[in-house]
């Protein structure tokens, strides 16, 4: 029964008008959740957790660096799933959403690289090192930018999206490379300290802000994705009946 409801709901979201309604309704709640989780997370990160015994206060950069890095990779996985659905079943909404994942993922990758570089300067004595983790993360940023560029290069949006979807699936190979880079190669970047399954080497008193910030960026990703997809949908469908009807009924608000 629940499965059937989810399935019907998912199929309904394939309709532009339903997606528009859904995103208008859900997005503000996701933004509110993001604001709340970020406020709690940053308060804990800056005021509550103690300094690290080796890195002192510089370790607090972790609370923006790590959630951004995770979201940059998780965002790519979400984008790949959407791209696969778009290519296999030709669902236009998933095509639009896959394309709109790219700028948000690129933003998180940029945050990760910038904050990592800033953290590296006092701890490693260098802003940048061409080690496997850093380089593969930089490649991820280039892939995101490539997807955005490819999509924008086509006058026919749907054709551009289909080509970009193929690039997305090819670029997916970089995600396990990023993840396992610290195990496969000797890197300046530290190895895994936080594990979902198994014991983390990070002290539990330092975990709460990381959890709050991780939830926050996930909510932010969802909210920004819905907003951007809604805008793109309006742009593409501006001459279609459902948009015209909506504009007339709302007086274009």
């Amino acid at each position: 029964m629940i499965w059937k409801t989810i399935k019907v709901g998912f199929h309904r979201l394939g309709s532009p008008a339903s997606f528009y309604r859904f995103s208008t309704l859900v997005s503000p709640w996701l933004w509110a959740g993001f604001a709340l989780c970020t406020a709690i997370g940053i308060y804990y990160a800056l005021y509550v957790v103690p300094p690290d015994y080796q890195q002192s206060d510089s370790f607090r950069i972790l609370y923006v660096h790590v959630p951004s890095a995770w979201q940059a990779m998780a965002g790519y996985v979400v984008m790949s799933i959407l791209a696969a659905i778009a290519l296999i079943w030709r669902i236009r909404m998933t095509e639009i959403m896959a394309m709109m994942c790219a700028p948000i993922g690129a933003a998180f990758t940029a945050i990760c690289l910038a904050t990592g570089s800033i953290w590296g300067r006092p701890m490693w004595g260098t802003w940048w090192e061409w080690d496997a983790r850093l380089t593969s993360m930089l490649v991820l940023l280039f892939i995101y930018l490539g997807i955005m560029g490819l999509y924008a290069a086509f006058d026919d949006r749907r054709k551009g999206a289909r080509v970009a979807c193929i690039l997305i699936l090819v670029g997916l190979v970089n995600i396990p490379i990023i993840h396992f880079s610290v195990e496969w190669w000797t890197t300046l970047h530290q190895g895994k300290t936080i594990r979902i399954f198994g014991e983390s080497s990070m002290h539990y008193s330092m975990m709460p802000p990381l959890i709050w910030m991780t939830i926050a960026v996930k909510l932010m990703f969802g909210a920004a994705l819905l907003d951007r997809s809604r805008n793109e949908l309006l742009t593409q469908d501006r001459r279609k009946g459902w948009v015209q009807k909506k504009l007339k009924s709302q007086g274009v608000s």
Partner: peptide, 24 residues
């Protein structure tokens, strides 16, 4: 709060805030 390595910590949080604000 006063931190050691304050310039590095605050600039990181600043970049995070600016990029996220742009996304909004």
């Amino acid at each position: 709060p006063e931190f050691e390595y304050a310039i590095y910590v605050w600039s990181s949080y600043g970049i995070f805030a600016v990029v996220i604000a742009w996304q909004i």
